[in-house]
């Protein structure tokens, strides 16, 4: 099932716990993700990218306006900025619990762990893994549930470049096989250009869409595609 996500006239403010100051993160903010569209969001830190993702995931409620995810509650695959693993149970169980809750057969856990290169660690506690390996567990958990909506909050920024590159290819493959609606937050403009159908540059307070780039290159794309570098240059220009 393809899911359309739309935020309409969303207001969202936080009260800073230390200063008591009210921060208006979004005011009358609207954004639509077409069914099966992968949108990348780039922007400075503290702009509201994670808040946007939490609004879509239902982890935050808007003060005003509406967030709609196609009427129902779509199956989510989410990679948080931190891996958010259960440290007291094995890597395999971490992934399996999400799979089982989503009605996915436990037999599908092993292939996913293989895909993120963690087969040997399936029975280890997450606490023995490096930061990058932990994040790969989180990626496996997000992919295993056959998500209708995939929300990725800087999923590859803690990884070494080689692993990040392979996971980007894996993500592209996921879209080639089964497109789904997705939001990718990243600091990496080239990553955004490589993966997304559309790149949204978020900036200001309250946050607004400063610029948008539609990227019509057909998939599979190559990370070395010169045209993507061109988009990358323009995104960086918009950011600075």
């Amino acid at each position: 099932m393809s899911v359309r996500i739309s935020l309409d006239g969303v207001d969202k403010a936080f009260t800073n716990r230390r200063t008591g100051e009210r921060q208006q993160i979004f005011r009358d903010f609207s954004l639509t993700l077409a069914p099966d569209e992968l949108v990348a969001v780039v922007g400075g830190s503290g702009t509201g990218k994670t808040t946007l993702m939490h609004l879509i995931a239902g982890l935050e409620r808007p003060d005003a306006g509406t967030v709609s995810t196609g009427g129902g509650r779509p199956r989510l695959g989410m990679v948080f900025q931190q891996p958010r693993l259960l440290d007291w149970t094995s890597v395999e169980t971490n992934v399996r619990l999400a799979a089982t809750a989503a009605g996915v057969d436990a037999a599908e856990v092993a292939p996913i762990l293989a895909a993120v290169g963690l087969t040997e660690y399936a029975r280890s506690y997450p606490s023995v893994l490096s930061g990058g390996q932990r994040q790969r567990v989180a990626v496996a958990r997000a992919f295993v549930v056959r998500p209708e909506v995939l929300l990725l909050d800087e999923p590859f920024s803690a990884l070494d470049e080689l692993t990040a590159r392979r996971l980007r290819l894996l993500l592209q493959q996921l879209w080639l096989r089964t497109p789904r609606t997705g939001l990718l937050v990243t600091h990496n403009a080239l990553e955004a250009a490589f993966l997304a159908d559309r790149v949204v540059v978020l900036g200001g307070r309250p946050a607004e869409v400063v610029r948008e780039y539609r990227i019509d290159r057909p998939r599979p794309r190559s990370p070395e595609d010169p045209e993507l570098f061109d988009v990358h240059r323009r995104i960086v220009a918009a950011l600075t």
């Binding site: 099932m1 599908e108 292939p111 996913i112 293989a114 895909a115 993120v116 290169g117 963690l118 087969t119 040997e120 660690y121 029975r123 280890s124 023995v128 992919f143 056959r146 692993t163 392979r166 996971l167 290819l169 894996l170 493959q173 996921l174 096989r177 089964t178």
Partner: peptide
């Protein structure tokens, strides 16, 4: 849903053999 699972291990084989032996 009857989609086949999109992720196939062989196609993007990651880190096979590169990782140090896991702690037993």
């Amino acid at each position: 849903m009857t989609v086949t699972h999109p992720v196939v291990a062989e196609e993007v084989a990651l880190g096979g053999g590169r990782s140090p032996a896991p702690p037993g």
